[in-house]
Amino acid sequence: MTKKTDKTEQEWPLWEIFIRSKAGLDHKHCGSIHACDAEMALESARDVYTRRSEGISIWVVPSAAITASKPEDKESLFEPADDKIYRHPTFYDIPKGVGKM
């Protein structure tokens, strides 16, 4: 067990990879890779995720820099929105006189 911990600590840090598939589109998260630093992460991301012309731009972000919501907070964070249908514009009738919006 101790040995396993040592090995984990020696591993390269994890990086999250975001790829823009073409000009005008957003960078989309596509996976993660291990690399010793940002520059190497960029190169590995190129080799792992853009082999089949998937992208024209890559962002790498240290996974440790991401603060994520917890799955167990799902109920309190997201479910209260489910019954607030008036938050969608489609809830409202638009008067005929307004015409096309």
Binding site: W12, I33, H34, A35, E43, S44, D47, V48, R51
Partner: peptide, 8 residues
């Protein structure tokens, strides 16, 4: 030594 280097 790693999957990333394998691909590279």
């Amino acid at each position: 030594p790693s999957l990333e280097m394998e691909m590279a």
